[in-house]
Design a protein around this nucleic acid. Structure first.
Length: 195
DNA sequence: CTTTTGATGCCCT
DNA sequence: GGGCATCAAAAGA
């Protein structure tokens, strides 16, 4: 087991208390793995209960219950009937979460290729649905803590350039610049050229 | 190359 | 029954 150098990486538990948009920016450059499979977080989006585009906007329901759980809880939902999408709950306000939209594959590449049925690195975990399929994340994980195994989420220690823009695939509150990405990454689901 | 559309599950009204 | 935080294949230019 390798520990980060003393004082270099921010403490995840305290970062989780931030507002969703702050956490989303700070998760860029982090490393996320699930049962040893995953990579570098290069794209995220923030959602919050005061946000018409958020699943938590209308208050707690059966589907979104995990969004109102403890900071660090995984919220996994089925998207368009075919895909799973992974969020991490944050603690500044109830109903806040950050959607993981894309990873740069680093660990467990064989498992990712097998689950995704392609060798193309860009098609392994670029996009929230692909990301979950590549890592083997399903609704069974909904409500579990991402602070413990089989999850491993380690924040970057700084020195990266983060870009932001409008969110993708939503019809409400499209003007909120709550999508964040690692500048220059080849693994973004779309470029940040807009606006 | 870009845009459109079908597949598909489930929550909400 | 409508709408959706998606993806991949098909159709158009």
């Amino acid at each position: 087991m390798t520990l980060p150098a003393a004082g270099s990486a921010p403490d995840l538990a305290s970062e989780l208390k931030r507002a969703p948009e702050d956490l989303a920016a700070r998760l860029i450059g982090a490393t996320l793995t699930f049962a040893g499979v995953g990579g570098l977080v290069v794209e995220t989006e923030a959602y919050d209960a005061a946000d018409p585009a958020s699943h938590s906007f209308a208050g707690p329901t059966l589907r979104n219950a995990a969004m109102f759980g403890r900071p660090g809880t995984a919220y996994v939902y089925r998207s368009y009937g075919r895909h799973w999408c992974l969020n991490i709950v944050c603690g500044s306000r109830p109903g806040g979460a950050v959607l993981f939209r894309a990873l740069q594959p680093l660990e467990g590449l064989d498992a990712m290729r097998k689950r995704r049925g392609t060798d193309n690195l860009r098609l392994l975990s670029t996009g929230p649905g692909r990301l979950c399929q590549a890592l083997g994340i399903t609704g069974a994980v909904d409500g579990e803590s991402m602070l413990a195994a089989p999850f491993d989420l380690t924040l970057a220690d700084g020195g990266r350039e983060v870009v932001c823009g409008r969110r993708i695939g939503i019809t409400k509150a499209q003007d909120r610049p709550w999508r964040f990405g690692l500048a220059g990454s080849q693994f973004l689901s779309r470029p940040f050229s807009e606006r």
